[in-house]
């Protein structure tokens, strides 16, 4: 059992790490900007080099904010799915939610119009992308939900989720086959996941969507705690199952869908981060796990982004590969630790 003092200390430490990583992430990029100048811009907003100002405000800060909010969103959606499905391996990526969002975007990008046309709409185009992603992820979630009403076995649902994800990817592949070269390239770059590609105009869509998703989750804390013990128990304690499921699935689609829309599918944050939070805070209570997952999500995605910059180099690695390399060991650890997989979340 952790003492109150320890918990406060952990929070302070984590917040400090988060801030340091945020500043480091702003500092790093393809153009070298001295640390002094970065801090100057961040804290005073003034510098003798106007180009630094542009780089920092137009690229670096949006990138770091994207990493921060995508980290919040993915880990919180993972946390909620692990509770609702009572499965430690649930997450937006594993259950095909990200794949669903990809399908939505793929249909928009390659099926309906071209990336250029969409981007010409400006903010409206961004909304189109994000709505397509929401619809895609919502569709997969709805399918899984519909099945979970009939099929009680969680492993079956998980496998079906993976199947849906694969089917969705297959459709996306077919779409790719019929699309022209430039659209294909745009889409493939998108699937690799990128935090740096998010413009400040897109941030104006991403951040509000994530904030709303998080707000809904904050409002569902009591419901999530009740769902931990299973739906029969939750019902017997007076939980409105339909409303709770709707709230959780709505916010999950919003969170995972929005991030996927702008950054591409980013794997393993959603599945791994909630476990790290549980491990550190040693609780199953969502009142601690929600902020805990958020802060760890932010830290890990910022860290992944810093690694992907390959400090000192001009290229950046696809963020998806970094998160996979960071997240997979955690997932392996979960599987080895509770081999039975009955031990929930």
């Amino acid at each position: 059992m952790l003492q109150k003092k320890h918990i406060i200390l952990i929070w302070l430490l984590l917040s400090f790490i988060l801030i340091v990583l945020f500043i480091t992430d702003v500092f790093l990029g393809s153009v070298n900007i001295p640390v002094k100048e970065v801090l100057k811009v961040l804290f005073t907003g003034e510098t003798n080099h106007p180009e630094y100002l542009t780089i920092i405000y137009k690229f670096r800060i949006p990138k770091a904010l994207t990493a921060l909010f995508a980290g919040f969103a993915l880990s919180v959606s993972g946390l909620q799915m692990q509770t609702v499905f009572k499965n430690p391996l649930a997450g937006p990526y594993v259950l095909g939610i990200s794949a669903g969002a990809s399908l939505g975007v793929a249909i928009l990008v390659m099926g309906v119009s071209t990336f250029t046309v969409v981007s010409q709409f400006g903010v409206l185009g961004n909304w189109m992308v994000v709505i397509a992603a929401w619809l895609g992820s919502g569709l997969i979630l709805f399918l899984i939900l519909a099945i979970s009403v009939r099929v009680k076995d969680i492993m079956t649902i998980l496998i079906l989720g993976i199947m849906f994800g694969s089917a969705t990817s297959a459709i996306v592949n077919i779409l790719q086959y019929f699309s022209n070269e430039s659209m294909l390239k745009a889409f493939i770059v998108w699937t690799m996941g990128s935090l740096g590609g998010v413009s400040s105009a897109q941030l104006k869509v991403l951040i509000p969507s994530v904030v709303i998703g998080l707000l809904i989750t904050f409002l569902s804390l009591k419901l999530l705690n009740a769902m931990l013990v299973g739906e029969n128990y939750a019902k017997s304690m007076g939980l409105n199952i339909r409303l709770s499921r709707f709230l959780v699935f709505f916010s999950t689609s919003l969170l995972a869908g929005s991030v996927t829309a702008f950054c591409g599918p980013i794997g393993f944050i959603g599945i791994a981060v909630p476990h790290i939070a549980r491990m550190v805070f040693k609780t199953a209570n969502h009142k601690t796990l929600l902020p805990g997952s958020m802060i760890f999500g932010g830290i890990i995605l910022l860290l992944s982004d810093i690694i992907s910059q390959l400090p000192g180099q001009e290229r950046t690695l696809p963020i998806n590969s970094i998160t996979a390399l960071v997240g997979i060991p955690v997932v392996i650890w979960i599987i080895i630790r509770n081999q039975k997989l009955t031990s929930v979340s």
Binding site: M1, V229, G230, Y233, M237, R278, A284, N285, T342, S343
Partner: peptide
């Protein structure tokens, strides 16, 4: 109130927290 045959086996869930969940309604 109800106790089902399902075994509640959740890692990191404290006994007290589980009992306090009964205060839900």
């Amino acid at each position: 109130s109800f106790v089902s045959t399902e075994i509640v086996n959740i890692s990191n869930l404290k006994v007290f927290d589980l009992v306090a969940l009964g205060r839900f309604p």
